[in-house]
Design a protein around this nucleic acid. Structure first.
Length: 698
RNA sequence: GCGCCUGUAGCUCAGCUGGAUAGAGCGCUGGUCUCCGGAACCAGAGGUCGGGCGUUCGAAUCGCCCCAGGCGCGCCA
């Protein structure tokens, strides 16, 4: 609603200015500090003043007088030194919001059901049919997230990744995009190798023995500890570590022998654990893309050919990188158009010169012929954009959680009923932490060097900062702080050291805390409903907590904050919905009314200083599209969290000012009820975009 | 050394395509509570927006230089 209106205004202003002054100018709109100043304001006349050499206020006056009617805008006034303040047509906004709510109810009802990711495609089709006339024309979007090394339990940092990615998916789908969710499984990497060595060498287990263990429920926890032990074991003797890792890694990559067998057992079992953990948070995937297939289906070989043929990578013949294939690193600024030949020349020049100039070059293939992670990632990224000329084979993942279908890549037989995962994406989001920014740039540079500048532009590194622990939290977890660490604002977690807050432990704690509270408040609720409610609150608290920070902010995790249910939290937002539902339930027996609110009475109720409070809530409810646009435009899901909180806050304020069911005037009572229902629908929708369910009671 | 990120109220953070008295949560102080559920609401105290220079009618926001912190720069991923 809000965004639609301001877009009208933007166009109208731009058009008018073009016509009247012959100036092409982008219209900046902001939200005025107070509702009495209107709903949208533009400082554009200050900019025009410079170009037209006229006082801004005078220009503003001319525009305000000459603009003419704009759909949905009641009036445009001059304010301050030359602002243009736009006032919405309040009654019109109301009737539109009501009409939209009605339409949304029929089309989007199942959209926000918590566990029904299977329903998403249907809801999405309906949505596309309604909102985008060009059904199917829009390209596919890929969001890759989670991508945890399958060698240990998931921790809080992994959850931030998954929650960010999942929220982005929901927001993009809400905006009408066709989104495919991928989870990259590095099942042939060093981290898995380390755990394999832990089982076979350190613990002297047999493959069968490991297979048995892998069926136990807390296998991921076992591996968590084993991985830490293995890291310690390697640190004791570096030469031994290098040798063991080398042979194990090679065996895993080739898929031969006990090492490879155990690696697959471990990776598959841990992936299962991760899927179960994420399912607790309502996070699901379409495809598990496995690194083993990148190798076995020769994705890398193909990419290697392409890179060599185009001259994108060079074989270093001297210096410390001799024998390696390297991707020359250049400042990519405006050199995207530079030809490969030129790039090659530069690379050769660099190769012969000082070490310093070489340090930025990235090794893609080692002198022993094995490919680095970046190389594999370039191949994978090429495939995502349909530029590799190869596709995976697919099969259903055997251990998907109940009622879910997850597909996985395979080098075995292809299941012909698999969705067309190989369809080229028009845009790819990779949710990866900020420490890997350089690597992501290298991948993009690789695409660019192959002449795929467009794809490089559309490879979005959805970067986010790590989750660390507050020193107090670290101490609580039994971690011994050095004096310097105790003074710092946070302590970094380390999977290698086995230090961190495991996702399942955190969820257990949250659920334990919420169930106690729910039992106390609702002793008569069935145990099953108590459990479901507590779960919804726990998930709401955690997901909101991880989303309320912007991506560039390091989160210093603390149980106290994450377990908080007051103030700017998920449960606060859920509580607003619960209150509304309480009113609705109560309303059935007393005071409710189905009387149609006339446009006139809505207009009257919303007008004047008296109506400002109600109007403010109505505008807040109608601004979801604004928040969604901001979230997509800046790739910042935190906007949705802000929106939900502000709407909940506005509602709570309204709730204390107005007594709805006992309102004597029937038109007003009906109006307050409809407004309340609108808030509920919008808030439920916003929470749904964050994967947060609003319970009936809490 | 080079590159990226961060520095805003006691604490944790929004705001940063330049614009109207710098916002929120927590904490603190005081109030609301015969109620549609207090996981709530209202009010108050609290800020040299790290520092300096510059651009501009206008800078928390843009540029440059410092200061402080973090991360990255490996034939690991």
């Amino acid at each position: 609603m809000y965004q639609t209106l301001t877009n009208h205004l933007r166009e109208a202003l731009a058009g008018h200015i073009r016509e009247k002054y012959g100036v092409e100018i982008a219209i900046v709109l902001e939200r005025p500090p107070k509702i009495e100043m209107g709903e949208a304001a533009s400082p554009v006349c200050f900019e025009l003043a410079k170009r037209l050499k006229k006082p801004p206020r005078l220009i503003a006056q001319e525009i305000a007088n000459g603009l003419g009617p704009v759909e949905g805008i009641a009036k445009v006034e001059v304010a301050g030194g030359g602002y243009l303040n736009a006032y919405f047509d309040r009654a019109g906004f109301w009737t539109n919001a009501m009409a939209e709510a009605k339409a949304g109810k029929e089309n989007g009802q199942r959209r926000d059901t918590p566990t029904g990711s299977g329903q998403v495609p249907n809801a999405e089709l309906r949505r596309e049919g309604r909102e985008t006339p060009s059904v199917g024309k829009q390209g596919k979007v890929i969001v890759e997230h989670t991508s945890i090394n399958p060698n240990k339990a998931a921790h809080i940092g992994h959850v931030r990744n998954a929650v960010l990615g999942d929220t982005m998916v929901r927001v993009l789908r809400h905006a009408g995009n066709r989104v495919q969710i991928q989870n990259y499984i590095d099942n042939t990497g060093v981290q898995v190798a380390d755990v394999v060595i832990g089982f076979l060498q350190m613990e002297q287990r047999t493959p069968i023995g490991v297979k048995m263990m892998a069926m136990e429920p807390k296998f991921d926890y076992y591996c968590w500890d084993l991985y830490a032990k293995a890291t310690h074991f390697f640190a004791e003797d570096k030469a031994r570590a290098e040798k063991l890792r080398g042979t194990t890694l090679k065996a895993i990559e080739e898929g031969k022998g006990e090492d490879a067998e155990v690696a697959q057992v471990v990776a598959d079992a841990i992936v299962g654990s991760h899927l179960r953990t994420m399912a607790r948070l309502g996070i699901y995937y379409d495809l598990l893309a496995r690194e083993s297939e990148i190798l076995h289906l020769k994705f890398w070989d193909r990419a290697f050919e392409m890179l060599k043929k185009s001259g994108a990578i060079q074989l270093a013949t001297s210096g410390k990188m001799a024998g390696c294939w390297i991707l020359p690193w250049e400042e990519e600024k405006k050199e995207a158009s530079k030809t490969n030949a030129e790039a090659a020349e530069n690379a050769e020049g660099a190769e012969k010169s000082e070490d310093e100039e070489n340090t930025q070059d990235k090794i893609i293939v080692r002198s022993n012929g094995t490919v680095t992670y970046v190389g594999k990632d370039i191949a994978y990224q090429l495939w995502k954009f349909g530029l590799l000329g190869k596709d995976f084979h697919y099969r259903k993942w055997p251990n998907a959680s109940e009622g879910e279908t997850v597909w996985a890549t395979t080098s075995g037989k292809n299941d012909p009923t698999a969705p067309h995962f190989g369809e080229a994406a028009t845009c790819v989001y990779n949710v990866i932490d900020a420490r890997q920014a350089y690597l992501q740039k290298v991948v993009a540079a690789g695409l660019r060097a192959l002449g795929h500048g467009e794809a490089a532009e559309r490879s979005i590194h959805l970067s986010y900062e790590i989750v660390a622990l507050t020193p107090r939290c670290a101490a609580e977890m039994g971690y011994e702080l050095t004096p310097e660490e105790a003074k710092k604002p946070y302590v970094e977690v380390s999977g290698r050291k086995g230090f961190g807050v495991k996702a399942d432990d955190l969820l257990d704690q949250l659920e334990a805390a919420t169930i106690a509270e729910v039992q106390q408040r609702h002793p008569n609720m069935s145990a099953e409903e108590q459990r479901r409610t507590a779960h919804a609150i726990a998930v709401g608290a955690l997901r909101f907590f991880l989303l309320k920070f912007t991506r560039t902010s390091i989160i210093a995790f603390d149980f106290k904050d994450a377990l908080s249910f007051e103030g700017e939290t998920g449960p606060y937002c859920q509580y607003a919905v619960v209150r509304i539902r309480g009113i609705r339930r109560k309303g059935v027996e007393a005071g409710a009314t189905s009387v149609e609110v006339t446009k006139e009475s809505a207009g009257a109720l919303l007008s004047g200083a008296e109506g400002d409070g109600l109007w403010e809530l109505l505008v807040a409810a109608g601004s979801l599209d604004y928040a969604v646009d901001a979230a997509i435009g800046t790739q910042e899901p935190a906007f949705v969290a802000k929106y939900a909180f502000q709407l909940a806050q506005a509602f709570n304020n309204f709730y204390h000012k107005h007594h709805i069911l006992s309102e004597g005037d029937e038109q007003k009572r009906a109006f307050l009820l409809r407004l309340t229902e609108l808030v509920e629908a919008q808030l439920v929708r916003a929470l749904g975009l964050m994967g947060i369910e609003a319970p009936e009671k809490m």
